[in-house]
Simulated assay, not measured.
Amino acid sequence: MLEGEARVIATDAAVALIREIRKDYPQILFHQSGGCCDGSSPMCYPADDYIVGDTDVKLGEIDGVPFYIHQSQYEVWKHTQLIIDVVPGRGGMFSLDNGREKRFLTRSKLFNGDICPLPGR
């Protein structure tokens, strides 16, 4: 990791979707899912509907929105930069991108610059 390199960034499409969601929900946060239902999708929640746990790690912010990941996942991905993007489709069942016909997707890049697949893929 280069000094000062962000652990999480977003594409222009992701920033546009974040801004669209914030029109309906001004205070939101992200949590990188590791559950069985939504796989590795970044989940977007109203900030007051999600309790950040003691084992969650704040990776940074994207467009002013905090982004968290569970400590166990952080240990697997700590050598990567997460890149939040948008693709066509339905978002996670409880994520605020659901019903917008586009969803957030996590891509990753090794801090040495190589693109790498997500764990388990």
Rank of each mutant, 00 (worst) to 15 (best):
I51K: 14
G113Q: 04
G53F: 00
H31D: 14
L96A: 04
C37S: 12
I83A: 01
D12S: 14
M1I: 09
F111G: 14
R19K: 15
E61P: 11
P46L: 01
C116G: 00
D85W: 05
D12V: 03
A47R: 11
R22Q: 13
E75M: 12
L17F: 04
R103C: 07
I18Q: 09
H31A: 12
R103P: 03
V86G: 06
V87S: 15
H79E: 15
D38E: 14
G92S: 10
I21Y: 08
T11R: 07
C36W: 00
I62A: 04
G120K: 12
I21R: 05
L59F: 05
L59C: 13
D49S: 15
S72C: 05
A47I: 05
M43I: 10
V86L: 11
E101K: 04
L105E: 11
P88L: 11
D38W: 00
S41R: 05
D114N: 11
G92K: 02
Y25W: 14
R7Y: 01
L29E: 08
F104R: 11
F94I: 06
L59S: 05
I21M: 09
D114S: 11
F111W: 09
G89V: 01
E3W: 01
C36H: 04
G35S: 10
P119L: 06
P42W: 00
D85M: 08
H79Q: 14
L110G: 12
Q73P: 04
P119D: 06
Y68L: 06
E101L: 09
Q71I: 05
F111N: 10
I69Q: 02
W77D: 10
S72P: 00
E5P: 10
I84S: 04
A14H: 01
D49P: 07
M1H: 13
I51W: 00
P42N: 11
C116L: 00
S33E: 10
Q81F: 02
M93Y: 07
P66E: 03
D97G: 09
R7K: 15
L105R: 00
C116E: 08
G113T: 02
L110D: 14
V8P: 02
T55V: 07
K58H: 11
N98F: 03
Y50L: 13
Y68M: 06
E61G: 07
